[in-house]
Design a protein around this nucleic acid. Structure first.
Length: 413
DNA sequence: CTCGGCATCCTAT
DNA sequence: CTAACGATAGGATGCCGAG
């Protein structure tokens, strides 16, 4: 196979950058120049850091930590209010510019895309110059910066875009791997999270280079055969996965809710399950799906999760069947321990043929899916209350009302 | 023994 | 003095029981 040319483009501190642009338009200060974050659910004091400015990073503030902890690290921290509609518009505008350069673009999240630039050399003879052009156009037209990673596969391009920030183009071609990637800590390797890093430590492997040069048989001592192969390939920059330009059908739909007041009554849990069944089944129906399996998840006060699932005799998209199944599942598995979280998931998704046909008839389908993944990625960072589709507005506000009622109870204690 | 079902774990944004 | 911790999705893994 001929060498590919892949770009990975990543908006620097996306939510902070986008809020900064918004505030600058209103004559405000530039959030990017001061220690700042965009943080969690504005209605809750217990939010988490969803994005941080580069100055905030210097205080040791990390994405995903509680806002209260970030404030302790930096008392001057500016906490920006989030504007999700604005973020979606920024994301669309960003992707629209990227899409001009190739038909093969994969939206990887709200602020990341992969571009397959293979075979475009007649149009763009100088890939690096093109990368700079995209980056600068985004800045000039939209007012925020991106990093561009350039390589011959998605993994290396993604690793490259994570190098020095902001507003940079980096290459990481295979011959550059020893110099640019191997000195990095293993935890910097995409898909090597905390747990894998700890395992690798037991073999005295702390850098990507050490991982790359460890024999497979040795990795198989701590990983499955598959896992050993995966990490061996990644550390050596091997990745054949294609840039997929069509959003894929969802493989599952889920909702989970963390409550302020511990759940101790089955009736309270069931109320939440009903709201979740409503929301999640509506989303599935909107995609023309039916689920063959329902599962409930719950988390106790020690953060220990349990789940219980059931296959249905036939796939369904009926809220009531899903809710009744969820009730049964929680009844079978919950033994009365106080809970801080309850969730509902629908899996084994069956698509009806209609949706497939409509691929050719309904021009709006892909657009709707693209919007869905954008909305989902916002939910991903901010949680359920962050965005609401019109179709789920009723049930969502019901949950919110319950939530507020509980907070009220707390205050009155 | 193999396969599918199930619960749990891990990783990412 | 200590504390704090969201939502969603996808995939991997290991166990167990049925055939």
């Amino acid at each position: 196979m001929v060498d590919r040319l892949i770009f990975h483009i990543d908006v620097n501190s996306a939510f902070v950058s986008w809020s900064a642009v918004e505030q600058l338009m209103n004559g405000g200060p530039d959030l990017r120049e001061v220690p700042s974050i965009v943080g969690g659910d504005p209605n809750s004091r217990t939010g988490i850091v969803a994005a941080k400015s580069i100055p905030a990073k210097k205080y040791g503030i990390v994405t995903g930590e509680p806002v209260s902890l970030a404030l302790r690290k930096c008392p001057n921290l500016v906490i920006a209010h989030s504007n999700f509609d604005w973020y979606v518009r920024c994301s669309r505008a960003f992707k629209s510019i990227c899409q001009e350069y190739t038909p093969t673009m994969q939206s990887f999240s709200i602020d990341e895309v992969f571009l397959d630039m293979s075979g475009m050399h007649l149009i763009y003879p100088d890939p690096i110059a093109t990368a700079y052009e995209i980056k600068d156009r985004i800045y000039n037209e939209l007012g925020f910066t991106v990093n561009v990673g350039v390589s011959s596969n998605k993994l290396l391009a993604k690793m490259a875009s994570d190098f020095e920030k902001p507003n940079k183009v980096h290459t990481l071609f295979p011959e550059e791997i020893p110099a640019k990637m191997w000195p990095l800590p293993v935890g910097d390797l995409f898909t090597c999270g905390k747990s894998s890093a700890v395992k690798l430590k037991s073999l005295n492997i702390t850098t990507i280079g050490q991982l790359a040069n460890t024999p497979l048989e040795q990795l198989a001592l701590i990983f499955s055969e598959r896992g050993a192969m995966h990490f061996h390939n990644y550390a050596n920059g091997i990745d054949d996965s294609p840039v997929v330009d069509e959003p894929e059908d969802a493989k599952g739909y889920s909702a989970e809710t963390t409550v302020e007041d511990d759940l101790v009554e089955l009736e309270e849990i069931n109320k939440i399950l009903l709201a979740q069944a409503d929301i999640v089944s509506a989303r599935m129906r909107a995609d023309g799906g039916k689920c063959g399996c329902v599962s409930v998840t719950f988390r106790n006060l020690d953060f220990v999760n349990k789940s219980h699932q059931k296959k249905l005799s036939e796939p369904t998209d009926v809220t009531d069947i899903i809710y009744k199944t969820a009730r049964q599942l929680i009844k079978e598995s919950w033994q009365g321990q106080p809970l801080r979280l309850v969730g509902l998931a629908l899996t084994d998704i069956d698509r009806d043929g209609f949706e497939q046909i409509s691929l050719f008839e309904d021009d709006g389908k892909e657009k709707r899916k693209a919007l869905d993944s954008t909305l989902d990625s916002i939910r991903g960072r901010f949680g359920n209350g962050a965005v609401q589709r019109a179709s789920t507005m009723d049930t969502s506000s019901r949950v919110n009302r319950m939530h507020r009622a509980k907070q009220e109870q707390n205050r009155n204690k």
